[in-house]
Simulated assay, not measured.
Amino acid sequence: MVSEYSRSGVDLDKVKRIHDEISKTISSTYTRTVLGAGHYSGVIEVNGIKLALHTDGVGTKTILALRSGILEPVGQDCVAMNVNDLICIGSIPLALVDYIALDKPSTDLVSKVMSGLIKASKESGVDIVGGETAIMPGVINGFDLSCTALGIVNELKTGKDIRPGDVVIGLKSNGVHSNGFSLIRRLIEEGKIAFDSWKDELMKPTALYVKPILEVLPYIKGAAHITGGSFSKIRRLTGLKVELLDMPEPQEVFKEIEKSGVPHEEMYKVFNMGIGMTLFLSKENVDEVMKTVQKYVDAFKIGEVKEGEGIIIRTYKNQVLSI
């Protein structure tokens, strides 16, 4: 049980059970599905072409965006939450559609959010081919933002080729990204985090990892975007034991969240703790991959795959946790 997150209204165990039930139900519709629910993206095959689809949103970070007036970054958040998941299964992102729902019309809000969407889409090589704007008073309080993204798959990367001895590389995050904000907002409301002091850090957009990963895609056996549920996402790739014993020091914003009352172990179950993406590859490819990705983002060799099962993390306080 993730106590502080549950107290904030998000019970990860219950969410997992809902996801499992949905996955079982929708599988009855599969006729052209190559990769169904439960991984980072769904994949269908049409006339020999594999197409990947993913949908995600910004979540309750939108509430703090309104409060702070820092609106443009959530546009990048929305794009990143989709394209970063697409590339985890070896898909090249191509296009997306956006959905923005508001409690009342606001040209200024929409303009700023769209600016972020457009900048992030251009950086990721993605076309925004359409979308929907809905005015929903009584249903929406403020605004909600989500996207659905499409990619093409030349070689599917599901993690099935991961073996003991493989190395895990971590790509640095831009901070909190866009997960765990129900918990963060509760801490702000309780006066445990001074929002005015930390708003610039908290509102930093989710990092875009498309360019570095596409450059090293042939070397990657699997990739895990560290979002909701944090490092537990690695279980989507492999059931082997993954030891992350060389994690870097996280950014100060994570330490501030922890100081506000979140248990140390829970931090590594909710937040990315400075690592936004993990890459799995053979030892002989580590130097080449590190050299390439570091042109775009700081990267670290953070662990290895071993015989057995489970996810083991050595934290910045030198504690060893089983996630």
Score class of each variant (00 low, 15 high):
R235W: 05
Y5W: 15
D127M: 10
I302R: 01
R7V: 05
A224I: 02
H177Y: 15
G239S: 14
I184K: 00
I118N: 12
L237A: 02
T107M: 14
S182K: 15
M273A: 06
K295R: 15
L94R: 12
E190W: 04
P205Y: 01
E189A: 11
L109T: 02
G222Q: 06
Y268G: 01
S111C: 13
I169K: 01
L208H: 01
G165K: 07
K233F: 07
I70F: 10
K295Y: 12
A149R: 07
G130E: 03
K204C: 07
I188D: 02
G165R: 06
L279S: 00
R186E: 11
G159Q: 02
E72T: 13
V167N: 05
F300L: 08
L240M: 08
I312Q: 07
G274L: 09
D20T: 13
G125P: 07
K221I: 05
I100V: 14
E123I: 11
N272S: 08
T158K: 07
H225L: 01
A101I: 10
I70K: 09
S260V: 08
V129T: 14
T238Y: 00
N174M: 11
L244M: 11
F300W: 08
I313L: 14
K301H: 08
M114Y: 13
K306D: 07
A80Q: 06
E155I: 14
G38W: 04
N84F: 07
G180Y: 01
S6A: 15
E252S: 14
L71Y: 02
H54S: 08
V97D: 11
G48D: 10
E309L: 11
K50S: 09
D85C: 14
Y268Q: 02
V139W: 07
Y5N: 12
C88Y: 02
G228E: 12
V293C: 08
I89P: 00
S3P: 13
D98L: 12
Q319M: 14
L35A: 05
V210P: 00
V129C: 12
G142L: 03
R67G: 07
G310P: 00
E266G: 07
L245Y: 10
